[in-house]
Amino acid sequence: MSLSKDQVHHIAMLARLKLNKDEYADSVEKLSRIVDFVDQLSRADTVGVVPMAHPLDTAQRLRPDVVFETDERDRFQENAAAVSGGLYLVPKVIE
C-alpha cells in the first residue's frame, strides 16, 4: 500500500468526508491503486521538459475593468438553505 491509514484519514479530514471504520480499509486500497497508477509517471524521463500549467497551448485572455453584473441577490438566494437580512446563514463559525 502506498498510502497509510493515517494519510487517508488526513485527506478525508481535509475534504470534510466522514468515513465509517469499515470504509477505511477499502479507501486505503482504492486510493493507493490510483496513486500507484499515476506514480508510473515518475519513471518517465522529464529532463528538459517544461512543466505544463495547462493543456491548451495559449495564454489567458484578459477582460477590461468594467462592471457589468447587476444585483440578482434575491434570485441567487432562492437556492440558499437560510438567509437573513441579505446574509447567507451558516452554523456559527467563530475564532
Binding site: 437560510a82 437573513s84 437580512g85 441579505g86 446574509l87 447567507y88 446563514l89 451558516v90 452554523p91 456559527k92 463559525v93 467563530i94
Partner: peptide, 13 residues
C-alpha cells in the same frame, strides 16, 4: 463572516 445578533448562526456576506 458576521457573528453578531444571529443566535446560533453566522451570516456570510
Amino acid at each position: 463572516s458576521i457573528h453578531e445578533g444571529l443566535d446560533q448562526y453566522s451570516g456570510i456576506d
